[in-house]
Amino acid sequence: MAALTINKVVSAARETFKTILSDKTVLMEHLQKLKICCNEIKASDLNITAGVTQELFSSSSRPADRKPPVSYMHLYEDEGVSMGVFFLRGGSRIPLHNHPNMYGLCKVLYGTINVQSFSPIVKDNNLDIPEFNEFQQQEGRPTTPRELLTPTKHYVTDNVTSDSDVCLLLPDVGNCHELKAVDGPAAFVDILAPPYAPDEGRDCMYYKLLTAKKGGDIKWLLEIPPPAEFWTDEIPYTGPEIK
């Protein structure tokens, strides 16, 4: 039964994201079917128990302050889609980042994850850049280059558990997000399509949410280097064979 569940998800994901190249008019219909499949998956289907995260981090030979805040378990990848599981230590987070021209689905396996996401706005050079609390202004001009700023609309902030519906992100909806483990460790299945590929313009960029002095509906994100406190290691998959 476990092998059937994970392979059903993989098969649905492959079929869904073929439509990116062939027929986008039916993509949303396929995405809804894929969401239904993903909602069925449980940690036990991947041979993952609620104690795996604790054992994973406590068994590391590295000092406590050098254990990764997040670990990754690779499940499947082809040219159209990638799948894996992220394990977060209690209180750890995957910093605010984007998925350029990509689709994504996240299904929590156990624990609680706070998701904060933003939808990018088409950049407009005529859009006034406000003053930010984080920076000093010089001669009435912002000190941050416009090309490092991304205007967005706040999409959602919510706590998500294994009982929650799959989180879905689109190229223009909820595409930038941060995920934080709440009240203990957590894990979630992550499906991305197409996979990250820097040479094809799909590089992962990290951001900081800025605070405009006068508020407003537009939320500005500042592109930053990968946060030094965030890194991952990879752990082996020991669940049913994925075909």
Results as ranks from 00 to 15, higher is better:
Leu46Asp: 03
Asp163Cys: 06
Asp203Glu: 11
Leu170Tyr: 13
Met205Arg: 14
His30Tyr: 15
Thr143His: 00
Val166Glu: 01
Lys219Ala: 08
Lys243Arg: 14
Arg62His: 12
Glu178Val: 13
Phe132Ile: 01
Gln116Tyr: 01
Arg89Gln: 15
Lys42Met: 13
Ser71Cys: 08
Gly201Ile: 10
Ala197Met: 11
Gln116Trp: 02
Leu210Asn: 03
Pro171Cys: 08
Leu210Gly: 01
Ser117Lys: 01
Ile129Thr: 12
Phe230Thr: 06
Glu134Thr: 01
Asp199Leu: 11
Ala2Asn: 09
Met102Gln: 12
Leu105Trp: 00
His30Pro: 03
Pro100Ser: 07
Cys204Ala: 01
Asn159Gln: 13
Thr161Gln: 05
Trp220Arg: 05
Ser162Ala: 15
Arg146Thr: 04
Glu15Val: 05
Phe188Met: 09
Ser164Gly: 08
Cys38Trp: 00
Leu149Val: 07
Glu178Met: 03
Leu170Arg: 15
Pro63His: 04
Ser162Val: 08
Pro151Cys: 10
Pro130Asp: 03
Pro198Ala: 04
His99Asn: 05
Leu169Asn: 04
Ser58Phe: 11
Lys180Phe: 02
Asn101Phe: 12
Ala187Arg: 06
Leu105Lys: 00
Gln54Ala: 14
Ile48Thr: 07
Glu77Ile: 09
Ser59Gln: 06
Asp23Leu: 04
Lys243His: 14
Trp220Ile: 00
Gln138Lys: 14
Met205Gly: 11
Asn39Gly: 11
Pro225Arg: 04
Glu55Gly: 05
Pro198Asp: 05
Ala43Asp: 04
Asp78Pro: 08
Pro195Ala: 02
Leu109Ile: 01
Cys37Arg: 00
Pro227Trp: 07
Tyr72Ser: 07
Ala3Tyr: 08
Ile242Thr: 09
Pro145Tyr: 02
Leu222Ser: 07
Lys214Cys: 11
Phe86Glu: 00
Ala43Pro: 04
Ile121Phe: 10
Ala212Glu: 00
Lys67Val: 15
Phe87Arg: 07
Gly215Trp: 03
Thr232Phe: 10
Asp190Asn: 14
Gln116Val: 15
Lys107Glu: 01
Phe57Val: 10
Phe17Trp: 03
Glu200Asp: 12
Glu223Thr: 14
Thr5Ala: 14
Asn133Met: 11
Thr112His: 01
Gly239His: 05
Gln136Gly: 10
